[in-house]
Simulated scan of single mutants.
Amino acid sequence: MGRGYTLLFVLVTFLVLVAAVTAQGNSVSNRGGGRRPRVGFYGNRCRNVESIVRSVVKSHVQSNPANAPGLLRMHFHDCFVRGCDASILLAGNTSERTAGPNRSLRGFEVIEEAKTRLELACPRTVSCADILTLATRDAVVLSGGQSWKVPLGRLDGRISQASDVNLPGPSDPVSKQKQDFAAKTLNTLDLVTLVGGHTIGTAGCGLVRGRFFNFNGTGQPDPSIDPSFVPLIQARCPQTGGTRVELDAGSVDRFDTSFLRNVRSSRVVLQSDLVLWKDTETRVIIERLLGLRRPSLRFGTEFGKSMVKMSLIEVKTGSDGEIRRVCSAIN
Rank of each mutant, 00 (worst) to 15 (best):
K305T: 13
T202S: 09
S251G: 15
L247P: 00
V263M: 15
S266I: 09
K316E: 05
A203Q: 09
K309C: 01
T202E: 14
I233R: 03
V230T: 13
F215R: 01
R293I: 04
I225R: 12
S319C: 00
L292F: 14
L276H: 07
T280K: 15
P223K: 01
V208C: 11
G204M: 08
R209H: 03
P295G: 12
R293W: 02
V195T: 15
D273L: 13
G250W: 08
S251Y: 10
S266F: 12
F303K: 01
G196L: 04
G242R: 10
F299M: 05
H198V: 00
G242F: 11
S258W: 00
P221D: 10
V263T: 07
S265E: 15
S296Y: 02
D279V: 02
N214W: 02
L312A: 03
G217C: 05
L289K: 09
P295W: 05
G219K: 01
L312Q: 06
Q239D: 01
L290D: 14
F259C: 02
P227V: 08
R293K: 14
F212M: 11
G304E: 06
V269Y: 03
C205L: 13
R264E: 15
Q220I: 00
R283V: 04
L191H: 12
P223M: 08
N262S: 13
L270H: 10
S319T: 07
F255Q: 10
N216H: 09
R288F: 07
S224L: 12
T218V: 04
N216P: 01
V263E: 13
G206Y: 13
R209K: 15
E281P: 01
L312H: 00
T193E: 06
R254T: 13
G217W: 05
S272Y: 07
R261G: 14
G300W: 01
R283F: 11
R288D: 09
I285P: 10
P231L: 06
H198A: 09
R211N: 14
S306V: 05
T243M: 07
N262T: 01
I200L: 06
G304Q: 01
D222C: 06
F259A: 05
T243Y: 13
V275M: 03
V269H: 03
A203M: 10
V284C: 04
Q271N: 13
L247K: 12
R244I: 06
V308G: 01
S311I: 00
K316Y: 07
M307W: 04
R288K: 15
D279S: 13
N214K: 05
L270A: 09
T199C: 09
E314M: 06
T202G: 00
L247G: 00
I233H: 04
P227F: 09
V275A: 07
T240S: 13
A235K: 09
M310Y: 02
L290R: 11
G304D: 03
T257Q: 09
V208I: 14
F213V: 02
D248Q: 02
A235M: 04
I225T: 02
T317M: 02
V230S: 07
G219M: 04
L290W: 11
D256N: 15
G197H: 05
R288S: 04
A203E: 12
Q271I: 10
C205G: 06
C205V: 12
S319M: 08
S296T: 15
R244W: 13
V195G: 00
V268I: 06
D256E: 08
D248T: 04
L289A: 12
Q239K: 10
L274D: 14
L289E: 11
G197W: 02
G201S: 04
